[in-house]
Design a protein around this nucleic acid. Structure first.
Lengths: 203, 203
DNA sequence: CCTGATCCTGACCAATTGGTCAAATGTTGA
DNA sequence: TCAACATTTGACCAATTGGTCAGGATCAGG
């Protein structure tokens, strides 16, 4: 978190990058305990001791990954503005979250894995980053409800709905594809979700 | 799957039961690889070799658990009948699924863990049990749409919505409670979901 | 009350895994 | 060029973990 712990040489930059990329693959596919340092090292093209030269422990890699993730993950929510049409703002949020599930499924699964296990390495960030942001946006949504700009909804549960519906397509990908067969999940999801939230939000 | 592998003595019945109960705790909280046989044995009040006297391997316990789970898990979907009011049938399904998240959160997490890891031990059952049932109910929903009994929806995505929204309250429990504070998640969820699907389904 | 089947345990094993370390090899800037 | 520094490696270690096994304890039925 200090300003001085940035990578310096280009070898460091390349290797740290490769490690994080590999770790994202392995952690998101197997969970924390299901992932091995050897796996990550191999996938990054490094030997295990070499990997541990850059990160002091398996846990440190995981923590670094989660820390980096939170920013990307919360970005779409931050983008909801109090100016502009409320319904469009919220439908836009749904759209952005769905695109993240499509384009960053590994990140979604990493996050899901962590929460499923009770967020042992994330509850701090959850309280200090997620909670305040959610409270702020929930208040905004509440104000829209009171102004009659959108239909009455419970702001927190509305946000839960958006999260669960969009992330489902990344986290439960296997199941979704098994049922849909050849059909593209995200095309159908987009129509379905825009329609659904449209009906639910318009006053 | 044969008829002859039922437990016989009452000691067997008690211990097999205790093992499954303990395994559900441990697997759902830590995932397959995160769980240890020692943990399960301790939680069941047995020694490790004693546990392995009843189940040949860790994997066997997990498989037994998943097999037992699928029945309970699919029961609410099976209950959707082609007689009776379509909207009530679907809202009833939402209700039952939400109650399952409240009353059987461990089962929900066990399932979520398995799907997240790519369903390595469940893809068979998924194809042979889930898929046909879902196809059948999707066809029913489609027929309701065509008859104008409910608003036009994509049947598969409607089912995905119900699953993700209800299971979210079990799987992401930590996050939900962190945000809601003292508020009861399920009370709010019930109102929110009934309202949401009501609006979406009524023609 | 005794005999065969069931149930249980301590001791043990091999494989895996996270992590260490001293030494070898590369890289870089003065 | 060469010395300081960064990078990489093979060998190694201790702890954990899934699973085995021989034998002892317990139980149920005749």
């Amino acid at each position: 978190m200090t300003a001085s712990d940035k990578p310096r040489t280009r070898i460091q930059q390349r290797n740290i990058n490769a490690i994080q990329e590999a770790a994202l693959d392995v952690f998101s596919a197997n969970g924390f305990r299901g992932a091995t340092v050897d796996q990550i090292a191999a996938s990054a093209g490094l030997s295990k001791p070499n990997l541990l030269y850059y990160f002091p422990s398996k846990e440190a890699i995981h923590v670094a990954l989660l820390a980096a993730l939170m920013d990307t993950w919360l970005a779409p929510l931050r983008e909801i503005k109090d100016t502009g049409d409320p319904v469009s703002e919220l439908l836009g949020y749904v759209q952005r979250k769905l695109e993240m599930s499509r384009d960053l499924p590994r990140e979604s699964r990493l996050f899901a894995n962590e929460i499923l296990q009770g967020a042992p390495r994330l509850s701090g960030t959850l309280g200090s980053e997620l909670k305040p942001l959610v409270d702020e946006k929930a208040a905004l949504i509440q104000s829209w409800v009171e102004a009659g700009k959108i239909a009455p909804v419970h702001p927190y549960h509305l946000l839960f709905s958006i999260w669960s519906l969009t992330q489902h397509y990344a986290d439960f990908d296997v199941q979704v594809r098994m049922i849909l067969g050849d059909e593209d999940p995200f095309e159908g999801a987009q129509n379905h979700l825009q329609d659904m939230f449209g009906k639910m939000l318009r006053p």
